[in-house]
Each structure stands twice: as C-alpha cells, then as structure tokens.
C-alpha cells in the first residue's frame, strides 16, 4: 500500500510523491473519499513545512487538530483561523480546540470573550 510506504519516506518531496502515486492508484478504483483525504494530507504537510520555517517550531506529522491546537497555544490565531477555513473544520470542534488551547496558554481574557 502506497500510503503505508509514504510514512517511511524521510524527505518531504519523496513523501508527497508517494502520496501522489497513491492518489493515482485510488483514482483507478474511484475511491473519492480517500483521494480527497490524501490531497488534504499533502496540503497539510506543505502548510506544516511552511509554518516550521516561519516560526522555527516543529509542526511536522501532527494531525490537523493538533496543529491548530499548538497554534492557538502559541497565540497564532490568524494562521489557525486560516487553517480552519482551508480544511473546513466544523465549528463545534474548532471551539473545543480554541477553549482547550486558550486554557493551556492561560489566556483567560480571550477565554472570557466566549
């Protein structure tokens, strides 16, 4: 399975390449859901790489949820809002992330706004 193999690739380019191959395989089988998710994963990996370069902190291989959570803890509301829109995170869960993230960061003022 290509997806499994992608996790062994050490370089980002290799990994996206393997994932792209996986998408091609799934297109033959018409697994629309998996295709969409794999594309999202590639997008997420690219985002994470960019964020790492920008803020010099590790984000790679976190799930989307954890990524947004970390960003919230680190006061990066703008980026987390952007990710939320990009990946269509449902409101309910986004607020969970916000609440927990803000509590972790001790931003009681922000929390109070709810």
């Amino acid at each position: 399975c290509k997806i499994m193999r992608s996790f062994d690739d050490e370089r980002l380019d290799d990994r996206t390449e393997t994932l792209n191959q996986a998408i091609k395989c799934y297109q033959k089988g018409r697994h629309d859901f998996v295709i969409k998710q794999t594309e999202d994963q590639i997008k997420l990996l690219k985002y994470q790489r960019r964020l790492e370069e920008e803020f010099n902190r590790p984000y790679m291989d976190l799930s989307l949820h954890q990524t947004i959570y970390r960003l919230t803890v680190e006061n990066n509301y703008k980026v987390s809002e952007q990710l939320r829109k990009e990946f269509k995170v449902p409101d309910r869960r986004y607020w969970w992330i916000r609440i927990q993230g803000l509590a972790e960061a001790g931003e009681w003022v922000e929390l109070d706004k709810f």
Binding site: I3, Q37, L62, S63, L64, Q66, P90
Partner: peptide, 12 residues
C-alpha cells in the same frame, strides 16, 4: 473528523 483529529495515518 477522525483523520483531522488523530492524524492521517489512521486512514488504513
């Protein structure tokens, strides 16, 4: 939701 929360690796 599961994939976004717990990570893409759970797709398998």
């Amino acid at each position: 939701e599961v994939l976004q929360t717990y990570g893409f690796e759970h797709i398998i």
